[in-house]
Amino acid sequence: MNKTALVTGGTDGIGREVAKGLLEKGYQVVIMGRNEAKAHDFMQSLGKLSSNLTFIQADLSLMKEVKRAVALFKEQYSSLEILVHSAGVIKTKRELTSEGLEVTWATDYLSRFYLTELLLTHLNVFPHARIINIAASGTKNGKIHFDDLIQGRKIGGMRGLGQAQYANDVFTVELARRLNATSINCYALNPGAVDTNIRRELPPLIIRVMSVFFRSSVLTAKDGARAPLYLALSKDLKNTRVGLFNRMKKLPISKDRSNRDTGKKLWDVSKKMIDQIIDN
């Protein structure tokens, strides 16, 4: 059985470096993203390794696109060992997708929930398959504004980013709880401050300030990929069923992130949002 990995956002930044690292370890790698030109450039840079790379074009902010992309994946592959969610956006203002969802919530959280759900049968084929959510795990403050998720009016921009990142932690813990009877491992990861194009939506002044004051702590995309590659490949984590990480340091899971009621509510709301879109 071939070793297969799927990396969203694999045409740029951390996702691209993670995909390259997995290719170098002998994996068949599928990348999902919007930009076909970037995917082509990536393949051109890989030389012989490109024969093991497949690109599926999809706008992961749209749930119908997620469903279509997974269907294409399943036509070619019968199993999946590693799923890395790297696709993400930063918006300074509230924006909606054509499906009526806040863009950051749809891209940075809900697409991950849906794509994972659709691929669970493929992941369960491999002992100790791994699901990795790249977000801002372990940040102290977090809140999911359940009253503003469906046809909401307020939450977006940077507040929306914080909400989506916090939701990834809650989702990761709840997913592991629901997969307790399987051997699938579920991780969420804060890779640290990484110099990638995801910051392109920030105001130029903020970007300049970050470049000056945080220069010594900002990682390159290659360095930022070391932590997700560690979570994906390390034999030491084989029996670590669930974990929140800051780079390669395992964090304690706070009570709010492991709260069963919050986890169930997030799961149920996520299912409802997706069903409303897919059934229309």
Rank of each mutant, 00 (worst) to 15 (best):
V269A: 11
S258K: 08
F55E: 00
V66T: 13
I90G: 00
R199H: 08
L120F: 08
H145Q: 10
I253S: 06
T104M: 06
I274N: 14
L53S: 03
Q163N: 05
F146Q: 04
F213N: 02
P203S: 11
A87H: 11
K64Q: 13
N124M: 15
A193M: 12
L189Q: 01
G26S: 03
A167W: 07
I277M: 06
S254L: 06
D261I: 10
I277S: 07
T92F: 09
L179M: 07
D256E: 04
Y77Q: 03
E24G: 02
S234F: 04
M43C: 11
T139N: 13
E65L: 06
D41Y: 07
E99P: 07
G157A: 06
S270K: 03
A193Q: 09
M43G: 14
K255N: 10
I184R: 10
L120C: 14
P191V: 02
A181W: 03
V70F: 14
D59I: 12
T104W: 06
W267M: 00
V7H: 11
E174T: 13
N124W: 08
V218H: 03
N197F: 04
E75R: 15
N185I: 02
K74H: 07
V170W: 11
K91S: 08
G162R: 13
L231M: 06
R112M: 10
A193F: 09
Q165M: 08
V212D: 03
N259E: 08
K255E: 13
V125Q: 09
A164G: 07
M158I: 13
N133H: 14
V218S: 08
Q28S: 07
A225W: 15
T104N: 01
D169P: 00
F126G: 04
Y77K: 02
Q165Y: 13
K20H: 08
S51D: 15
T11I: 07
S78Q: 01
R112I: 12
Q76A: 06
T262V: 13
I278P: 00
S45W: 12
Q163L: 12
N2H: 03
E102D: 10
L53I: 15
V30Q: 03
L119V: 05
Y187G: 01
S254W: 08
T97Y: 09
L202S: 00
I150K: 15
E201C: 00
F73Y: 15
V125G: 13
R200W: 00
R68P: 02
D147H: 10
G10S: 12
Y109D: 09
K222G: 01
L6D: 01
L266E: 05
L175R: 07
K3A: 08
T220S: 12
K38R: 14
A58K: 14
A227E: 02
Q76P: 00
